[in-house]
Design a protein around this nucleic acid. Structure first.
Length: 472
DNA sequence: CCTGGAGTTGTCCTA
DNA sequence: TTAGGACAACTCCAG
């Protein structure tokens, strides 16, 4: 039997249930499509496109350059390919974005009507979102009960092994190839951005092994310190399916002691599941406040403040370091993501949509479920969100989690000579000291664009105002 | 249906 | 200096 395997966010050969099924029933036509039917708001951001370009390069190489890569409408391209190459079956791993679900179910119906055998698989999640519901049938809205449910019902999948050298590929004459997808930016800024990353299945496995060897032993504490990098760095690999959560879970359990560190790491994997759970059950997650009372929240509209945040020119060093890390590397340490998010939605009081969009365009790990759920969490309008009075103080956070300024100075080098004592409140640095460090405050480094104490109080007032209106 | 316990990641003030 | 409580109730979840 000839099967078309449609690669989407499952860009790996190992532990890929849909690909394995295709290979087991005969010859395979491996296909990737950059779907031009995708709605504009879901279209990949620049950083993700650059990552995808490399990931597809890696996947194509592991398939001996047999991967068919096309740009266009999947709804027409898939049936066309099936007809051209006498395909009898189609496989893919499921996606969970609303538009993906809609497209896939339509396509499945159309293909079945043509007599093709179409099968979809779970290749991206530990749990299908429709399986993680409460006893009353409704979805979880609070993380901890969701987590407990998951841990009680977790049945590890033995990662499926595929002998890549024995994949029989359907001979084809598709010439278009990777360059026709035009994923790389016209000005190739992406080389510099991706120096620390290796997209693709091999890179994902190496990243996992590196983390298990160097980060896991310290994970519970160390993950909060951006200079340490005790985090896994697997988010982009997971997003594109270069590695599966089952593979990560199995390796973590097999190769690290089952202690508090491992438990906390698994909790983070389950957070990813929780986000997909929310996206599936609340498909408007990207746009609509999960807590409707936030529809009345008095957000500010200020282009200059937004621009300062985006470019890392807020005058708060830990915030600026994070935003510049994002711009330069396509990523940001988790602790710092929370700090910059809190700053945007509470101190600047700009709508979380601005943060969601900027992250979407800049992150190599941009993921509809995780990004939307996390921004709603930070803004306080999500399920099980941070309480509104929890407002991060960028000075305190910097002092606590980057006490030596190693991380902050890496991305805010103009403050290299500033003593640690003043690093997180440079405006308070006596002029003779900053002059000795060669810094003119307000010129070499911006003065704070808002005052933390006043903006915090204004945010708290806005929240209580919102609640008053919601109640009335 | 009722009830009790709990809820990712903080800050600030007071004693 | 440091430890503890307030912040604001409210909803969610399990028994």
């Amino acid at each position: 039997m000839r099967t078309l395997h449609w690669f989407r966010n499952d860009l790996r050969l190992q532990d890929n249930p849909a690909l394995l099924a295709a290979c087991q029933q005969g010859a395979v036509l491996p296909v990737f499509i950059l779907d031009t039917d995708e709605p504009a708001r879901s279209a990949l951001g620049g950083a993700s496109r650059a990552w995808l370009h490399r990931s597809l390069t890696a996947l194509n190489a592991s398939l001996n350059n047999n991967l068919v890569m096309l740009k266009g409408s999947a709804q027409t391209l898939i049936p066309d390919l099936c007809a051209r190459y006498q395909i009898e079956a189609v496989t893919w791993n499921r996606g969970y974005e609303p538009w993906t679900i809609q497209r896939d179910s339509g396509l499945k119906t159309a293909l079945k009507a043509r007599g093709l055998a179409v099968t979809s698989f779970n290749g991206a999640l530990l749990f299908e979102p429709w399986d993680t519901v409460k006893k009353d049938g409704f979805p979880y809205r609070v993380y901890t009960p969701f987590y407990k449910h998951c841990m009680a019902n977790l049945s590890p999948r033995i990662p499926g092994v595929l002998n890549a050298t024995r994949i029989r590929v359907v001979p084809h004459a598709e010439q278009a190839g990777l360059e026709s997808l035009a994923l790389r930016p016209p000005v190739t800024w992406d080389d510099a951005m991706l120096t620390d990353w290796t997209p693709g299945e091999q890179g994902a496995q190496r990243r996992l092994q590196h983390f298990l060897a160097t980060g896991m032993g310290d994970y519970r504490e160390g993950r909060d310190f951006p200079a340490k990098r005790s985090v896994s760095g697997l988010s982009a690999h997971l997003h594109f399916g270069e590695i599966s959560p089952h593979q990560v879970l199995a390796s973590a359990r097999a190769e690290s002691p089952s202690d508090d560190n491992q438990a906390h790491f698994i909790k983070e994997l389950v957070w990813r599941e929780f986000s997909y759970n929310l996206l599936y059950h609340f498909p408007t997650l990207q746009e609509k406040n999960l807590q409707a009372k936030f529809d009345h929240f008095p957000w500010e509209a200020n282009e200059a403040l937004l621009k300062a945040w985006q470019t890392g020119q807020t005058g708060y060093p830990i915030v600026d370091a994070g935003m510049r890390e994002l711009w330069q590397t396509g990523s940001m340490h988790n602790r710092v993501r929370m700090i910059v998010a809190s700053f945007l939605v509470k101190n600047l009081r700009l709508h979380w949509h601005h943060g969601e969009r900027w992250f979407w365009d800049c992150l190599v790990d941009a993921d509809l479920a995780s990004n939307s759920a996390s921004w709603q969490w930070a803004a306080g309008c999500g399920c099980d969100a941070a309480p509104y009075f929890r407002i991060f103080n960028p000075t305190t956070q910097g002092q606590r989690f980057d006490p030596d300024g190693e991380y902050t100075r890496r991305y805010v080098p103009e403050l290299l000579g500033l003593p640690n004592q003043y690093l997180y409140e440079p405006w308070a640095c006596p002029v003779e000291i900053s002059r000795a460090a060669g810094i003119v405050m307000g010129k070499d480094y911006p003065a704070p664009i808002v005052e933390v104490k006043a903006s915090r109080e204004a945010a708290l007032l806005a929240f209580s105002e919102m609640k008053r209106r919601a109640a009335g």
